[in-house]
Simulated scan of single mutants.
Amino acid sequence: MKRYELIVDERRLLTIEELGRLVDVHPDLLQRFVVYGLIDPEIDKPCLLFADRAIVRIRKIQRLRGDLGLNLAGCGVVLDLLDRIDDLEREIHYLRSVF
């Protein structure tokens, strides 16, 4: 197996196998996360490579599945809402600092 040492913005990208070992999730399940749009690879060819921020996202998915019993589609809805809340909070913070 080839080892990719691609660095983007001074961060090392992780293969799906490396990511799986770090979060204790089988690479096949991580592949399903990609298919459902729960995590996005930085690079998808010749193989999937992920930024380290995917670890945080996968931990959220694990909590949603384990603690709330959500399926992958439900995780997608919740993650989209959480992302939207983060965006709105950043916008509010910016507007308060400008005005």
Rank of each mutant, 00 (worst) to 15 (best):
residue 69 G to T: 06
residue 91 E to D: 06
residue 40 D to K: 15
residue 34 V to T: 07
residue 72 L to R: 10
residue 48 L to V: 02
residue 5 E to K: 14
residue 4 Y to V: 02
residue 34 V to E: 08
residue 62 Q to G: 11
residue 91 E to L: 06
residue 50 F to R: 02
residue 71 N to H: 08
residue 39 I to Y: 03
residue 68 L to T: 04
residue 24 D to V: 12
residue 57 R to W: 04
residue 43 I to G: 01
residue 15 T to M: 04
residue 30 L to R: 00
residue 84 R to E: 15
residue 81 L to E: 10
residue 18 E to N: 05
residue 12 R to M: 11
residue 97 S to D: 11
residue 51 A to M: 10
residue 62 Q to D: 15
residue 65 R to S: 13
residue 26 H to P: 03
residue 95 L to F: 01
residue 12 R to Q: 15
residue 96 R to F: 04
residue 52 D to F: 06
residue 31 Q to F: 12
residue 14 L to R: 04
residue 81 L to K: 10
residue 69 G to W: 05
residue 84 R to F: 03
residue 45 K to D: 07
residue 57 R to I: 00
residue 81 L to T: 03
residue 32 R to G: 05
residue 84 R to L: 06
residue 70 L to R: 08
residue 42 E to H: 09
residue 91 E to M: 03
residue 73 A to I: 09
residue 9 D to Y: 09
residue 1 M to I: 03
residue 20 G to I: 01
residue 22 L to M: 12
residue 50 F to C: 00
residue 93 H to S: 15
residue 73 A to Q: 13
residue 14 L to N: 01
residue 80 D to Q: 15
residue 7 I to W: 08
residue 31 Q to W: 10
residue 62 Q to R: 13
residue 1 M to A: 12
residue 73 A to P: 01
residue 47 C to M: 09
residue 58 I to G: 04
residue 67 D to F: 10
residue 55 I to K: 09
residue 16 I to N: 00
residue 42 E to W: 05
residue 95 L to N: 00
residue 61 I to D: 04
residue 69 G to A: 05
residue 57 R to H: 06
residue 70 L to H: 06
residue 17 E to Y: 07
residue 82 L to D: 08
residue 33 F to Y: 15
residue 70 L to P: 02
residue 63 R to M: 14
residue 74 G to A: 11
residue 52 D to S: 15
residue 75 C to F: 06
residue 11 R to G: 04
residue 26 H to W: 08
residue 23 V to Y: 09
residue 37 G to H: 10
residue 76 G to R: 10
residue 59 R to D: 14
residue 35 V to A: 14
residue 43 I to H: 03
residue 72 L to G: 07
residue 41 P to A: 15
residue 44 D to W: 05
residue 47 C to Y: 05
residue 62 Q to L: 14
residue 18 E to G: 03
residue 79 L to Y: 08
